[in-house]
């Protein structure tokens, strides 16, 4: 039998829609005087987030050489922050990112990420800019996009405070509502599965979620919220049950950054994950000084899925992972 999997999984109309969207994004940032930049896809350092697995390539001196590991970027964050520390001003990048093992209806291990940084912006100003881009891309009405805190979502769905609920309560909720045999030892893992299984799929209208648990800060600043709880100054934009964008009030404190790298390394060791060298150049750049800024990454393939009303990422990719 002839193989048919040489064919693209995206229709020609979807390929044309991607072309349109890329142009729209570039026009959007040109009007706002944000500089388009390109940074290496392949680096010596890697993100150390224990929840992200980098794909490793090897660079050597020629044929037959084993070479040294080079990490395909899981996001352009570190390199872009080095540009910001060097005085680039507002910058954006539209390019590929790679994450090992992430494959499914909403994930492809190689995907298109739009990431941008705004020196001097508050998180609120950045949310406004994300909303403006998404409204333009999806031709939405100019209505403001709703905002709800992470705590309010959990309060509404489960009647508990995700910042303070004891582990045993969260575990009981996972058993009752997700899977009675799913045993999770950590609060964040419980919150993650409760969110993924029971909250995110219900968020169909566009909504910004903000103020995440401080333990889920990644590279965002932490600060007390109105109730005095320490929260991560982060937001996500969710629409059609899809996480579309993830924004931070960016951590700029070099010592705190170094501490989080250490924390990641400990977590990776505890989870039995391979150790990853912290990016010393990023820490050096932060020591030099990162301007106060807000930054966000937006999944372009998912934006295209929403634009075309499709439930599967393969419908917007010329050749998804399985046909690459």
């Amino acid at each position: 039998m002839l193989a048919h999997d040489w064919r693209p999984t995206a229709s020609l109309a979807a390929l044309a829609a991607r072309d349109d969207l890329n142009r729209l994004i570039r026009n959007f940032f040109q009007r706002r005087a944000v500089l388009e930049v390109e940074t290496p896809l392949m680096s010596r350092g890697s993100g150390t987030d224990p929840q992200l697995a980098p794909i490793v390539a090897r660079y050597g001196v020629g044929p037959g050489s084993v070479g040294e590991p080079r990490y395909l970027q899981t996001s352009p964050e570190f390199a872009m922050k080095r540009l910001l520390a060097a005085g680039s001003g507002p910058i954006y990048q539209l390019g590929k990112a790679f994450r090992d093992g992430e494959s499914g209806p909403r994930h492809n291990p190689e995907f298109t990420l739009l990431e941008w940084y705004r020196p001097g912006f508050t998180l609120e100003q950045l949310m406004e800019e994300v909303a403006a881009l998404v409204r333009e891309a999806l031709a939405l009405a100019a209505d403001p996009i709703a905002r709800v805190s992470y705590a309010a979502l959990f309060q509404r769905e489960f009647g508990l405070d995700p910042h303070s609920a004891p582990l045993v309560h969260l575990q009981a909720l996972v058993h009752a509502r997700v899977d009675r045999q799913l045993d999770l030892g950590e609060r964040d893992a419980c919150l993650d599965v409760l969110y993924s299984a029971l909250i995110e799929p219900t968020l169909l209208e566009p909504v910004f979620i903000y103020d995440y648990p401080a333990t889920q800060a990644a590279l965002a600043k932490t600060a007390p919220d109105a109730q005095g709880r320490l929260v991560a100054r982060r937001f996500e934009l969710v629409m059609g049950g899809l996480e579309l964008a993830n924004g931070y009030d960016e951590l700029s404190d070099a010592a705190e950054q170094a501490r989080r790298f250490e924390q990641d390394a400990l977590t990776r060791a505890r989870l039995g994950l391979p150790p990853l060298a912290a990016d010393t150049r990023l820490v050096a750049a932060l020591t030099q000084g990162l301007p106060a800024c807000a930054g966000v990454a937006l999944g372009v393939d998912r934006l295209l899925m929403l634009k075309l009303g499709t439930r599967h990422i393969d419908a917007v990719l010329a050749f998804p992972h399985a046909r690459a």
């Binding site: 929840q51 494959s103 299984a197």
Partner: peptide, 30 residues
């Protein structure tokens, strides 16, 4: 279905048919 919150842990939501009973199971795995 692979599910993963932006900065969180990844899970797989799986539907299976028990071949002995014929019943459909929905399970979630890390």
């Amino acid at each position: 279905e692979f599910v993963k919150p932006g900065k969180g842990q990844a899970f797989n939501r799986v539907r299976l048919r028990n071949l002995r009973s014929g019943r459909i199971w929905e399970r979630t795995f890390k």
